[in-house]
Write a protein that binds this DNA or RNA. Sequence first.
DNA 1: ATTATACTTAACCAAATGGTTAAATATAAT
DNA 2: ATTATATTTAACCATTTGGTTAAGTATAAT
Lengths: 108, 108
Amino acid sequence: MVKYNAEHLNDVFSVLSDPTRRTIIEQLSKGERSVRELAQPFDMSLPAISKHLKVLENAGLVTHRKEGRYRYYAIQPDAMDGACEWISTLKQLWTKFEGMFCCKQKKQ
Amino acid sequence: MVKYNAEHLNDVFSVLSDPTRRTIIEQLSKGERSVRELAQPFDMSLPAISKHLKVLENAGLVTHRKEGRYRYYAIQPDAMDGACEWISTLKQLWTKFEGMFCCKQKKQ
DNA sequence: ATTATACTTAACCAAATGGTTAAATATAAT
DNA sequence: ATTATATTTAACCATTTGGTTAAGTATAAT
């Protein structure tokens, strides 16, 4: 079920506007990660990462489960569908329905 | 030519995170519009709209031409391609390449 | 029991964001 | 020439954002 309302779009696009959060999403696309693992590539304090994770979770883009003292974060793949559909719809209007898909495929 | 670098993604997603700017984009998808036309649906001062248009233009999402005392804004359709491709790439990773397209098509 | 690890919460701060009103600029109309 | 319209710029303000450090909580290891 795709959430497709203004507030959710605000949240999702806002989440994606931060490069740290995009990198976190990229990492999570390879599977579950603990907070420390997610923090590793950044020159940034752990509380900062913790905050980013909270923002990501509030927007519904990630979830976590607790295992011992670890928190494992995972991606929530459908949460971006609304945002993607919004772009898709706009693209369709611009191109006057010449293309059916959201994104151009790589030219080969 | 698709811009696909971190700063441009920051800008584009940040632009899209504001509902006023998304509405402006939606209006422009139907064609050129003057500033006053774009401002009409909002309960907001003209300088506020002017600022939003500047943000949109800085991110490359719109351009304008001047005609007399009017400024006509137009959409720059390719500017969102980078953002769209980023989402697309992520979706592909999540679904382990089960789907080739950025967005799910409407189920019928 | 003590200490170390994993992580969050709280308090704080500077900079960015999104709005305002008032004044300025440029063009058009009278 | 004067006035009206279209729009921007400037100065300001409150709120949000993204970071910090210090302290707190929960679990694991010794």
